[in-house]
Amino acid sequence: MSKRILVVLSEYGYWGEELVGPVEAFDARGYQVTFMTPTGKRAQALPPSLDADYIDPPLGRSVTTRDMARRAAELDASDRLDNPLSLQSLVPERPYYSALNHLREVEDYHRRLDSALTDLVSGFDALVIVGGSGPIVDLANNERLHEVVLGFVAADKPILAECYGVAVLAFARDLESRTSLLWGKHVTGHPKEYDYKDGTGFIGVEFNMGPPPYPLEYILRDATGPDGAFHGNVGKETSVIVDHPFVTARSTPDSELGGRKLVEVLEDGLRRYGW
């Protein structure tokens, strides 16, 4: 039976290559790929990620080849991204503590959550959180997505997170302990040196945020704790870390390798790579 992969995309823009890389690796193995967004709205690629002439400010060069721009544009325009699953529809929302009948509402929430996660997690072999600037807006602090991540971890199923999608792993935590899932783990992610100083952009939002609203590297360094580590691998062309059940990819050039490593985790039992 072919593997089934759940791919989560931001509705505020994903980076083209960071979707193409994993999806092409999965397609090559005959995996079934299902897409999901926060509210079921169709995801769109960030325009710079489809432009081979766009110069990435921190690196001072294009990070998208003409061939990759073509492949990303074809996938972005295809009907594969139409009608994604809606996270909002599938996973309930935790009630506010100010709710009038809070205890009963929380009990009901946990019943519905357990049922939703059982159905969702059992239907897939792995979870992928695609990067780009969009995840900063609607994925990083999305409590519904945090619950999905916790569900996959509890089921010992692997998760690939790329670029700013790695923030989801740092923030996903059980409310009893509030400890990051990354505590004691080795991860990579967007390092401070590669962050924009200006021009962080989103689909459907007409303003210049300037730099990213948080330095992901600092968050990951804190989240991994004294027994884990953040690996920026600044100056190296690729940075992918496997510390089961997590596969983390730093940025755009790492998406193909990240996809291949997730395949190795699923098919060969890979548990450690890159550190």
Rank of each mutant, 00 (worst) to 15 (best):
residue 1 M to E: 10
residue 4 R to C: 06
residue 6 L to M: 03
residue 7 V to N: 00
residue 7 V to H: 02
residue 9 L to K: 04
residue 9 L to E: 01
residue 12 Y to E: 12
residue 14 Y to M: 00
residue 16 G to F: 01
residue 22 P to V: 08
residue 24 E to R: 13
residue 25 A to Q: 12
residue 27 D to G: 09
residue 28 A to F: 05
residue 31 Y to K: 06
residue 32 Q to C: 10
residue 32 Q to W: 11
residue 32 Q to K: 13
residue 34 T to F: 05
residue 35 F to N: 01
residue 40 G to F: 05
residue 42 R to E: 12
residue 42 R to Q: 14
residue 43 A to L: 03
residue 50 L to N: 00
residue 51 D to V: 07
residue 53 D to I: 02
residue 55 I to P: 07
residue 60 G to I: 06
residue 62 S to G: 11
residue 63 V to N: 09
residue 65 T to L: 10
residue 67 D to N: 11
residue 73 A to L: 09
residue 74 E to M: 10
residue 77 A to P: 07
residue 86 S to L: 11
residue 87 L to V: 08
residue 93 E to D: 11
residue 94 R to D: 00
residue 95 P to A: 06
residue 96 Y to Q: 15
residue 97 Y to F: 14
residue 104 R to V: 15
residue 104 R to E: 15
residue 106 V to Q: 15
residue 111 R to T: 15
residue 113 L to Y: 01
residue 119 D to F: 10
residue 121 V to M: 10
residue 125 D to S: 04
residue 126 A to C: 07
residue 131 G to A: 06
residue 133 S to F: 13
residue 138 D to M: 00
residue 138 D to T: 00
residue 139 L to K: 08
residue 141 N to D: 13
residue 149 V to F: 00
residue 152 F to H: 05
residue 152 F to L: 06
residue 153 V to K: 02
residue 155 A to H: 07
residue 160 L to P: 07
residue 169 L to C: 04
residue 174 D to T: 14
residue 179 T to Q: 15
residue 187 V to P: 00
residue 189 G to I: 05
residue 193 E to W: 06
residue 194 Y to L: 12
residue 195 D to Q: 13
residue 199 G to W: 00
residue 199 G to M: 01
residue 204 G to H: 00
residue 206 E to A: 12
residue 215 P to V: 12
residue 223 A to P: 04
residue 223 A to E: 02
residue 232 G to Y: 07
residue 233 N to G: 11
residue 234 V to Q: 13
residue 234 V to C: 12
residue 235 G to I: 01
residue 236 K to D: 15
residue 237 E to K: 14
residue 238 T to V: 12
residue 248 T to G: 03
residue 252 T to L: 11
residue 253 P to G: 09
residue 255 S to Q: 08
residue 255 S to W: 06
residue 265 V to E: 05
residue 273 Y to D: 14
residue 274 G to I: 03
residue 275 W to P: 09
